[in-house]
Design a protein around this nucleic acid. Structure first.
Length: 241
DNA sequence: GAGTGGCCAAAAAC
DNA sequence: TGTTTTTGGCCACT
């Protein structure tokens, strides 16, 4: 795979210059941050940073706690409308966040349940490490390798478009595929842009920075030979109306 | 031959 | 008007 990968310590000054170097970027309120040993992934209109946020022991404890306390949506909230048909989503899902926030996609609106102390702790750990603040988390639970998520972009209007999305993985390591929007489908115009595959590890944190979600689809494909649970938390900054 | 994974199209609501 | 967080069919590979 032809990647431009730079292993470096992320500095506060770096991240600020990234977000304030262009007038297109808002200057978000950022707090002091520690530094994870992030690997940087930079492709055409793709900017992602990936590093290990929690040790195996810490991540084990978090996963165990999540399995104990999290309750997932059922009924209509666990369905999705696509091409006029309703389907059960092939995973479990729930959202927590600030009061009044919700996440809308494909015919559904996922209301945020109140923050739980465990989720607030994780959210605050990510803020300490990255400097970014979040007001919403979408949690997906994949019971094994047969649960998955299809290609999509997180570019909903409810999201602060140029704020990073922080994705924390707990449990089973899974492939995570990025595909450029112009490299997809039979009539693609940019077949020269190869997909980017990452393996998201137990305790790993993936930062998807602007403008990745405007140009790149991502997916978590089926892996039938994997049998353990994975929980993914995507911390987001929603627009407050 | 079976299992798996990648690619593509569907046909209607927003 | 363009898009679609799925499903299912086809095909290639192991």
């Amino acid at each position: 795979m032809d990647l431009f990968v730079v292993k470096t310590k992320r500095k506060r000054a770096d991240s600020q210059s990234e977000s304030s170097g262009s007038k297109k970027f808002k200057s978000y309120e950022k707090s002091e941050c520690n530094v994870i040993d992030f690997k940087k992934f930079r492709l055409e209109n793709l900017s992602c940073d990936y590093g290990i946020l929690y040790s195996k022991r810490e991540a084990d404890n978090l996963l165990k706690e999540c399995e104990k306390i999290l309750c997932y949506n059922e009924g209509k909230l666990a369905k999705i409308c696509l091409f006029g048909k309703w389907h059960n989503i092939p995973r479990k899902q729930v959202a927590h966040g600030d009061e009044g926030l919700s996440y809308k996609f494909s015919g559904n609106s996922i209301p945020a349940r109140p923050w739980l102390p465990l989720l607030e702790n994780i959210r605050d750990d990510i803020t300490r490490q990255t400097g970014y603040k979040f007001n919403f988390v979408l949690i997906n639970r994949y019971k094994d390798g047969s649960d998955y998520m299809g290609e999509h972009k997180d570019d909903e209007k409810d999201l602060e478009a140029d704020h990073p999305i922080a994705s924390l993985s707990l449990g089973q390591a899974r492939d995570f595929i990025f595909k450029h929007q112009d490299s997809r489908g039979k009539n693609s115009t940019r077949r020269d842009i190869p997909p980017l595959k990452l393996v998201l590890q137990h305790g790993g944190l993936l930062m998807m920075n602007y403008p990745t979600n405007s140009y790149w689809y991502h997916s978590l494909p089926c892996r039938k030979k994997l049998f353990n649970v994975r929980i993914n938390m995507t911390f987001r900054k929603m627009v407050v109306k």
